[in-house]
Design a protein around this nucleic acid. Structure first.
Lengths: 350, 350
DNA sequence: TTTGTTAATCGTAGCGCTATGATTGGAAAA
DNA sequence: TTTTCCAATCATAGCGCTACGATTAACAAA
């Protein structure tokens, strides 16, 4: 106190709100090494000597030190966060991918920053912009269809970009997914194989859900090229059992000969199944139903639902793998595309 | 790539990898104001004059400036991120809450950092630790049951902690949710009201899912205190339609008199419904079924499923509101608890 | 005029960490 | 011996921003 009263006012003491009580400096001091050694130990433990390493480890333990990832991210110009942008986590497909990614990334101490577009490109653009301002280790987005601005932003940037759940369009960098038109084609082929000749696709929200549209198109095309009658019955609302019921009853009215339907997803298929029950249409004798998704209830339906299972979790795991490899310094081949395929599960509804 | 071609003086000293090309300094320079004014404009636009504001806005637009949230977070000792930890996003309940939170927080430019515990307290502990190292604006976790270490970490820390989806236990700070035992009781009361006297609870994963257990207990207690026969039939696996079918058939075998069941959730109830169909048990004449969750298919079942709807989205919205208010400086009452209630939807399965 | 008051703006020291390049000590090579 | 080399460690300049306190401008009150 007294020694600071030097006639003229000294530099005013600034006080800032501290983020945390124990910092890397404290650990360094306690362990009698420099902060850089602590930092090095934390990032590449094999680069410091065994003795220094154990001293530092003890200091960290003792002081209960928790590294500040924000500061680290700023200094390193890249944070240990992965930004993932999906249409909606309420959608079981994306939830599964998100969960799988999370489970793989967690082992590398990478965090997931989540965003929903609600199937809105403008929203996606906003989310990408925010995502970039976090300097993430990677950006994962859904589908290959984005606004020009989004595409431009992402091309300019140096973080790896991974597009998931769609293949076959123009990709920004890496893409992991499958061909949705092939899904539709597989459904059609299967129904035809079962002897069905009057098909329809029960589609929900085809105007917004590009991938559902692709499945529909693939279905129609395959049916047509097989010389089979095919029609589309659709509804603008999101896929649900309720919509499925409505669509099937509409389809039956319009196409009395109908003997096989493929659905936007298993929710729609479930609704169709219930509608059959209500209308005493025997499945699969009179009508075959094929869904998409293999949701949790699909195998337990009555009859169990024939469906096509995409590997949502595989997509997530592969995306995580790509990110981890990139962080490890492996330069991935540009414009890589990974086809995770899908599986037709033939159950009793067809 | 190198879109910035500034004629920089050779500095053989240190060069660091820059995170971004255009910074707040650039904007300030362009707009002829100081960086602090730009910062102020970005955080509290009403605090700068209209003229300065519009100049800055123009500069931002012109230079295509994207703020660096990592740097901001470090300087402010708190990032614009909210950490949310749920058992799993594959679970529709939590997915709904996450989505609702996201939708509210997005308006405030807050990001969601997601973590999954997979119903493992040790994992939760790890996630909380990582979450804290992001200096989030708030931490949201699921349920009131945590490890001692987790609880200690969170009590020590100054960020707001919100526990969701459970009420009635010892809470760390804020809690938003409802009483699960009341859900069970409501189901029991409803079944009794429908004239049912031989009840059973079909429970999945009761040993791990604390909240499912509470619903079960509430159900049993309410039934007992009404003097009605009641039993529990359970399975260690996660709730699914498949498990539901198994549980119901087991229950019918053990309790031939059975005339009413409540289920862990609507997946289980759906499975029970299918089992009834397979076994030609008429619902609700011979057996009433009550679910939990009001999942997307519940209203479209045949018969439509009586169920109890929790307000997963309300929980998310309220959590977001609390966080936003806290950030706005409002000091929330400590230990606040918000009961979001639930609704019994009486449909034709009971 | 001076003084006080308020609104708007500014200057700049950190926030905690990482990356770069420098330095060190001791063993191996000459 | 001297020189070289390398692994281990260190010193420190930022990363881009926010918040604090200071300063200025504008105008009313004394």
């Amino acid at each position: 106190m007294a020694d600071q009263a030097k006639g003229q006012t000294e530099r005013p003491q600034r006080r800032r709100r501290k983020m945390q009580s124990v910092t890397m400096m404290d650990v360094a001091e306690f362990a009698q090494v420099s902060p850089s050694t602590v930092s090095l130990y934390l990032r590449r433990p094999e680069a410091v000597s065994a003795s220094a390493g154990s001293t530092i480890a003890r200091a960290i333990e003792k002081l209960n030190y928790v590294p500040n990832l924000v500061a680290g991210g700023l200094a390193a110009a890249s944070s240990r966060a992965v930004s993932i942008i999906v249409p909606s986590v309420r959608n079981a497909f994306f939830a599964e991918t998100v969960a799988a990614m999370q489970n793989t990334l967690r082992k590398e101490k990478l965090q997931l920053i989540l965003g929903h577009t609600e199937y809105d490109e403008r929203e996606e653009e906003e989310l990408v912009k925010t995502a970039l301002s976090w300097a993430p280790a990677a950006i994962v987005l859904t589908g290959l269809s984005h606004s020009d601005t989004t595409r431009r932003m992402l091309q300019k940037v140096s973080v790896p970009v991974i597009e998931i759940w769609e293949l076959g369009g123009q990709q920004i960098d890496a893409a992991i997914g499958f061909h949705h038109d092939q899904v539709g084609a597989a459904a059609a082929k299967h129904l035809i194989q079962q002897g069905r000749r009057n098909l329809a696709y029960l589609g929900a929200r085809l105007h917004e859900d590009r991938r559902a549209k692709q499945r529909c198109d693939g279905f129609v095309e395959a049916a047509k090229s097989a010389g089979v009658t095919v029609d589309i019955v659709q509804h603008p609302a999101a896929a649900s059992a309720e919509v499925g019921g409505m669509l099937l009853s509409e389809a039956l009215q319009a196409l009395p000969q109908l003997d096989g339907v493929a659905c936007s997803n298993d929710h729609v298929a479930l609704g169709a199944l219930f509608e059959c029950e209500r209308s005493s249409i025997s499945v699969p004798e009179r009508l075959s139903i094929v869904g998409f998704g293999d949701l949790s209830f699909s195998a337990a339906c009555n009859p169990p639902l024939t469906t096509i299972r995409p590997s949502g979790d595989l997509i997530g795991r592969e995306a995580a793998r790509l990110i981890i490899e990139h962080m490890a310094g492996k330069d991935p081949e540009p414009q890589i595309s990974i086809d995770t395929r899908f599986t037709l599960l033939h159950r009793r509804s067809s």
